[in-house]
Amino acid sequence: MEQRSGLRERKKNAMWGRLKATALQMFEERGYENVSVAEIAAAAEVSKATVFNYFPSKEDLVIGGMKHHIEDPARTVRERPLGQTPHAALRDRYLDLLEHRAPQTGLSDKPLFLQVQRLIQATPSLLISAMDYRRRSSVLLAQELIEEGNPPLTSRLVASQLLHTQHILVEVNVHHVLEGRPVDEVYSQAVSAAFHAFGLLETGIGDLMRRDTDPPAADAAFAPDGCRVGYEPGRAEAEAVLERFAGEAGDEIIEALADPGRA
């Protein structure tokens, strides 16, 4: 029975890897938005239903693994030892993951990881989904802090600062790795960056970057409320649409709307 179970598990893992590799290759060649699940199934010589058995959505073929780490920060903080702050717990956990070159730190040169990162950066919809996973992780961390008896606002601020700081560190690591720098070379820099970033959280930004020169003159193109002078919400977009349609011959109504003087 154990041998049969082991065989089934190996077959499942093999199929999972086959589908993911096929999808990533097609996405890289043609663009994520230009490949359908049906086409992936055909290329892998399986049914569309089989693909969905392993990956609930097309998006999961690329970033589904992120779902498994949404609860990591909250769990790390919940299980921290007596006397340790959330800040120290997440810092130590991040440094440990860095040492092991864990993909969630951005410090990995595995081909699959690099493919996924390139696709995320090239595909706005995937980038938005990845950002939402991070948002959900922050919400869970804040809830954990609130359940410990901390004020809701403070909990949300702390959770957001901690996880956004870690996100920037990961983003820098990914950038270096995609540039082709060896991960072992990036590692020491990543550790230094982590101590610097978490150190800022620990001590506060205080007088850091206080201006010591006169500021430039105010930009006359912007009003005091921050909007561009003369800007009317939606007008530029509407004019662009009208101009595009007016360029099509034979539509006198659209042409009149685009140029009211002709009416």
Results as ranks from 00 to 15, higher is better:
37 V>K: 09
143 Q>D: 14
126 L>A: 03
97 L>C: 05
168 I>H: 15
207 D>L: 05
159 A>G: 02
223 A>R: 11
122 A>Q: 10
143 Q>N: 12
175 H>T: 10
201 L>K: 05
182 P>F: 05
124 P>L: 03
33 E>A: 15
138 S>G: 13
55 F>M: 00
257 L>F: 08
186 V>R: 05
234 G>P: 11
26 M>P: 11
2 E>H: 13
47 S>I: 10
175 H>Y: 06
17 G>C: 06
237 E>R: 13
135 R>L: 15
160 S>F: 15
32 Y>F: 15
112 L>V: 12
166 Q>M: 12
155 S>Q: 02
153 L>A: 14
21 A>T: 10
13 N>V: 09
195 F>K: 13
85 T>I: 04
246 A>H: 04
191 V>D: 03
20 K>F: 00
139 V>T: 02
136 R>V: 12
87 H>R: 08
180 G>R: 04
84 Q>R: 14
249 A>P: 11
112 L>H: 07
205 I>K: 08
259 D>Y: 00
67 K>F: 07
23 A>W: 04
10 R>A: 13
66 M>D: 00
105 T>N: 08
149 G>S: 01
10 R>G: 04
66 M>P: 03
112 L>I: 08
215 P>F: 10
108 S>P: 04
102 A>M: 10
177 V>I: 15
59 E>G: 07
213 T>A: 11
123 T>G: 00
40 I>N: 10
203 T>E: 14
